[in-house]
Computed example of a mutant assay.
Amino acid sequence: MNSLRNSLQGLFRFAPVARTAGSKATTRHISHIQRRFVSYQRFPERGGSRPNSGQYSNFAPFARVQYIWRNYKTIVIVTGAGGGTFYVVNLEEVPVTGRRRFNIVSPENEKALVSDSAYQQTLQEFRGRILPKEHPYTQLVARIVTRLLPSAHGLDGGDWQVHVIDDPNNVNAFVMPGGKVFVFTGIIPIAQDENGLAAVLGHEIAHNVCHHVGERLSRQVFTIAAALLISSVFDISGQIGNSIADLTLTLPNGRTQESEADHIGLLMMAEACYDPRRAPGLWKRMGEFEKRKGGAPPQFLSTHPSSGTRGEAMEKWMPQAMEKYNESECSITARGFNEFRKIADVGRRMPGTMSVLTGGRASREDEDWPF
């Protein structure tokens, strides 16, 4: 990421605009431009005293734009045309939703950028808190991932690894490109049951289906360019320009990606025979949790839509999800599964019954069922 930013800064010959020291150099550049706005006395037009049209605006930002246009018109046109062509050529369609987006990072490069060292670093960070493979939570997450992957549009191959981190205070889960799944135990009570956890994992896997990491890296080109332009035109520090670019470009795109992952994740869980009608309840519980913790930031300042917005969106997508659910004959499967669970619950209270229901096999998994 830093190398991309440094390359673009060199291209534009500006000082860094990242959230680091760089505003002084940017100010020096702006001052240099300002010095070149030479005040001059214009000759009156013949037959009157009206100044000619070369007058710069009294509003400084407009004056700077006028100066750049008049002195660097060819560069601006060539750069704009080249950038527009580059943007259009690299547009692609997101799987399932069909959204058109700019992306120059291939899935292979995406995996390479999120290297194995990042995975090892994450394992090292949470060393001692990762639950063993035989733990019921780990087995539960692995089972859900296994059911979701056939609906993951080409991601069912590869080396998928599931890790559950024992941290009740961390309400989160994420999936690295390449299939490295991390779930924190803090989200399990909010998920409430296997359907809720399938909604969470479907969302995280959907980010990989859409290659959102590559899209975010690709958009950095325009975010940095916008920050440089804003800082130059309005004569403000690079940090402020970067914040404005984030507010107007990065955060809205982040909310679009999160909503898209919700949509695709809902369809994935429905296709995998998890009940999609349980997904909106997850976001209702998440909203209640956020209120207990002091509330979430305003939506326009966040990379994620609010929990209420996400729940409402899922209700709108529900007919499409239920169509997937019924096409897979999941309702029949679910009824059979629920009936088995009722009998199994009775079996726990009646010694010897479970051995009959399981054909004489051990019922350890059922006894350790976490919910």
Rank of each mutant, 00 (worst) to 15 (best):
R13V: 06
T223Y: 05
Q299C: 05
R100G: 00
T309A: 15
N71L: 04
A18F: 02
A261K: 02
G287V: 00
D166H: 13
L357C: 05
K324M: 08
G48E: 03
Q139F: 00
I77S: 07
I75S: 12
G238S: 06
L197Q: 04
E110L: 01
L228I: 15
E92Q: 14
G265S: 06
G157S: 15
W369R: 14
V213N: 08
V38C: 04
M314V: 04
R13Q: 12
I68F: 08
S302N: 06
F340Y: 13
P177T: 01
V17D: 12
T358S: 15
A227T: 05
R348Q: 13
T353F: 07
D116P: 05
T248H: 07
T358K: 10
T138F: 04
K73W: 08
A206H: 03
R28S: 12
R36P: 00
D235L: 03
M176A: 12
L217R: 11
G214S: 06
R310G: 10
G178N: 11
P168T: 03
V209H: 04
P319E: 09
R5V: 15
C330H: 03
T256W: 00
H32P: 00
I188G: 07
G196D: 06
S31Q: 13
L357K: 01
K133F: 02
V114G: 09
G360D: 11
N52C: 09
P252V: 06
T248C: 07
I75K: 11
I230C: 10
T85A: 12
Q41S: 12
D262W: 02
V221H: 02
R101V: 15
